[in-house]
Write a protein that binds this DNA or RNA. Structure first.
Lengths: 228, 228
DNA sequence: TGTCGGTCTATGGTATGCCAGAAACCAGAG
DNA sequence: CTCTGGTTTCTGGCATACCATAGACCGACA
């Protein structure tokens, strides 16, 4: 036996019921497609507390947090409702996203190492604009990872946090719109240009390309996506 | 008597204890200068609930909200502490602010009316770079209102909300740094240029000027402000 | 006198019960 | 049948009691 000492593992950190309930609720809401209009939009404190097996207090705190994030709306003595974002709100979110991610790109040109930037290639080079049609699922993932990578390489935790909060609202849209072949092709070209600008440490150009890339998504949504 | 009808006023909407407690707490925290190191950083649920005259439940919900905004940190069975932001965090906030406000400037060039943009003049023209020294208090206010006006004219509620959340953390810094005469002078010149670019509907230039203006604040803080 | 173990206290987490108000329901008058 | 007023029920807001644990405190033993 190599070890005479007790092998001590840090004891399993059980987080509070509140945060576990929060995670569970958030996951549940993300899982359902809230834009399918026949989805159940009403929540009930007491029913949920039974389903989760916790009392109303931690559940209420979790709900309050979700309300602050804009996922649910709590109407006193009326009920709790899952929020369906309006098109205008989605467009604002994409606009803010554009602002943040373009700033992130600027920061990447200043803060990231050459190796880190080079790492972006593998999220981009795997796809060519001609054959992307047959790998849409993978591309959609790579697309999301690419944007996440830029934000992460910026080393700005606050940008990451805010973007993360927006992401879950925009994700559904992003996935929906990417499935139009022209947008995917255009997207691939954009991404390659962005990586080039980052490698050249061209802050202005990287920032502008990222901004325009995301604002194009915004304009596309504005024109073609029907939500309400 | 001109009116035979009852003059009905919408009944005073009493908001929940939770939100009133939240407001009161937030105001109290803002009022104290948390960077005076001998300030009391520890909060106590039960004591506060007595002072506010509410039970712990709404108080806790208010505190939870403040925690999510990053104003306090709740440590289970240890205590609740007012958070002192690190310099790095402040710098991230100013960076995000720069991203948002520069995007706002871009939106202003697209969405605001000529009259609205002209209205910015009165926040800028009252001061000249030579005589600002004797009206620093007023200028500090006008400065804040100017930035608020750009964000408001962008018509993007989300930018306004996020900026607002950042504002209270950065406000103390902004006021502290403006009181160095050279920065005030430089600021006045910047603002005038920004208004010109907005009037010319020059999106790129307006965006760039706003960004650079705020990033200069960031770099100034990075170099000269001592927090920790 | 210093260390170690147990005990007490302070504090946030959780469960639960009551309350007020909104909406649904119901019954009686017209 | 319709409209109105009351009544019941459902729901979130709030108060409060209890719980578990971190840390302070204390006393005995070496």
């Amino acid at each position: 036996m190599s070890g005479v000492k007790l092998e001590i593992q840090p004891i399993e950190e059980v987080q509070s019921l509140k945060s576990r309930t929060y995670d569970a609720l958030k996951a549940a809401i993300s899982a359902m497609n809230i834009y399918d209009s026949n989805a159940e939009l009403r929540l009930d404190e007491r029913a949920l507390s039974l389903q989760f097996g916790v009392s109303r207090t931690p559940l209420r705190e979790a709900l309050a947090q979700l309300e602050q994030e804009g996922l649910v709306r709590i109407a006193p003595r009326r009920g709790i409702y899952i929020v369906r974002k309006t098109k205008a709100e989605i467009i604002e979110m994409i606009t803010v996203w554009a602002a943040l991610e373009s700033m992130a790109a600027r920061l990447v040109t200043q803060a990231a190492s050459d190796e880190e930037i080079a790492g972006l290639h593998e999220l981009v080079d795997t796809f060519t604009s001609t054959e992307v049609g047959s790998h849409m699922g993978e591309y959609s993932d790579a697309n999301i990872r690419f944007h996440g990578a830029i934000i992460s390489l910026s080393r700005c935790k606050l940008i990451a946090d805010i973007s993360n909060g927006l992401f879950m609202h925009v994700r559904a849209i992003r996935q929906r719109t990417i499935f139009e072949k022209d947008r995917a092709r255009r997207s691939i070209v954009d991404h390659k240009e962005i990586v080039e600008a980052l490698e050249a440490r061209n802050s202005e150009r990287a920032e502008r390309l990222v901004r325009e890339h995301t604002l194009r998504l915004r304009d596309h949504v504005e024109q073609f996506v029907q939500l309400d």
